[in-house]
Amino acid sequence: MAFEIVESCVNCWACEPLCPNQAIVEARPHFRIIAERCTECIGDHDDAQCASICPIEGAIVDEYGEPLNPPGSLTGIPMAMALSLLEKARLAGGSTAEPST
C-alpha cells in the first residue's frame, strides 16, 4: 500500500515538506515516493497530504495506478476542452504547447 508519483510531476516541491513519513524525495526526472515509507497518511491525516496539495492532475496515483486527482478535478478545465482549445490555438498559428495527457 503506497502512492506513486508519475512523470507528469513538475517538481514543484509542494508535497515534500508535508509528508508525515518523509517518504517523498527530490529526484530526477521527477520527485519520488519511497514505497516502503508511504502509509497513505493513514493514522496521521484524514486526507493524503501529497495528493491534497499537488497542483497537477494525475501526477500521484494509488497502487492500482488510479490518479488521486483525476483529470478535470483541480483546474476545472475538462480535459476534452483543454485538448480541443490547444488544438485550436495551434491551428490559429500561435505558439503551441504540448497538451499533457
Binding site: 513538475v10 517538481n11 514543484c12 516541491w13 509542494a14 515534500e16 515538506p17 496539495i53 497542483p55 497537477i56 483541480l74 483546474t75 476545472g76 504547447a97 499533457s100
Partner: peptide
C-alpha cells in the same frame, strides 16, 4: 517553489515567458 493555492491565471506545468517555475 511550493505553492499552497491555485490561481486561474497560473499554471505550474509550463515554463512560459510568463512564469518561472522549477
Amino acid at each position: 517553489p511550493a505553492c499552497n493555492i491555485q490561481c486561474h491565471y497560473c499554471n505550474r506545468k509550463y515554463d512560459c515567458s510568463n512564469e518561472s517555475r522549477p
